[in-house]
Amino acid sequence: MKKPRLAVDLGPNLVLKNPVVTASGTFGFGLEYAPFGDLALLGAVVIKSVTRHPRRGNPPPRLVETPAGVLNSIGLENPGVEKVVKEILPALRATGEVTVIGSVAGETVEEYVEVSCRLAEAGVAALELNLSCPNVKAGTLFGHDPRLAAQVTRAVREALGDGFPFLVKLGVVGNDFLAVARAVVEAGATGLSLINTLPGLAVDVKRRKLLLGQGTGGLSGPAIRPVALWAVWRAYRELRVPIIGMGGVAGVEDVLAFLLCGARAVAVGSGTLAFPRLAWELVEGLEQALAKEGVEDVRELIGMVAGS
C-alpha cells in the first residue's frame, strides 16, 4: 500500500509535515511532553500563550472536570517573553527538528506587536495571536470587536512584514465571530485558529459559591466538539483561508471530521491531558486511516463536507 501524503500548508510560507498540532496551553512549552514522544514527529508544537511580562495566573481552583470536558481558568500563567526566548525555545529546539508555533497574548496592541516580533526573531515557524482568552480581564476584548481585532492584526502584520505566517485564534461566543474572522483576514492574518474555549462556570453547591477561584472559566474537550466543527465549517465556507481546527479532538475520526469541515490542520488540546501520547497516536492513526481508504493525499479531504 502506498504511504499517503500527510503534509499540509498553512499559507504560502508554512508547510507542516502532517496536520496534527498541539493546542496552546495544553502542551506546556513542549518540553513537558518530550518524555512521551519525539516532538519532531508532530505537525507543530503550539506553545502556551506568551505575554510581555511574566503572569502568575489565577487563584486556584483553576480546573474542574465537566461531562466529557474540562473547565479551566488558568489565567495565562507564563514566564514572560524574555525567558521564553532566552531559555525555553532554545531548550525546545535542542530536542530536535521541532516545528514551533508561538502563541501571543496581550492587553494592548503594542504588547501583541512586541511579543510577536520577539518570538518571530527567535525563529518560530509561525505565530498564533490569541485574541480569545476568556480567563483574563482583557482576554476577549480584541476578539469580540471586529474593529479592534483588525487593528491589532494590522499592527502585527506591519511589524512582521508581508510573508510571515500568523493565524488569529478566536472563540465563537460574543458578536458574530465571522465578522471578527473576516476583519482579521482582511487586516492581513494568514488564517484562523478555531476555537478557543467557550465561557462557562461551575457551582460549588455545598458551599454556595462559584467553584473556580476566578469564578468563571473556559470549557474545552469533547463537550465542545460540535460547536468547534460548526465554527470551522462556517469560517471555511465564508472565507476559504487556512484554518487550524480544534475542540474536543480525542480520536482519528475527530481529526478527519475537522479536515472535512475545512481545517488544514487540527490541534489536540484537552485530549492530551487525558492521553499524553494522543497527538502522536493521531499522526499514526491518520496515516493508517488514509492508507486503508486509499486516500493518497490528506489535502483531498479538506473542506469536502463544506460545499462550494
Binding site: 495544553t26 506546556g28 513537558e32 502568575r56 481552583p61
Partner: peptide
C-alpha cells in the same frame, strides 16, 4: 489540588507559595 495533565504542562494545579514578601503559584 485538582489536576489536569499531572506532568507540569497545563498549570491547572496551582498552589500558593511564599516568595519574599510576595507569593507565586
Amino acid at each position: 489540588e485538582r489536576m489536569g495533565c499531572g506532568v507540569g504542562a497545563c498549570r491547572g494545579c496551582a498552589v500558593k507559595v511564599r516568595e519574599g514578601k510576595d507569593f507565586v503559584y
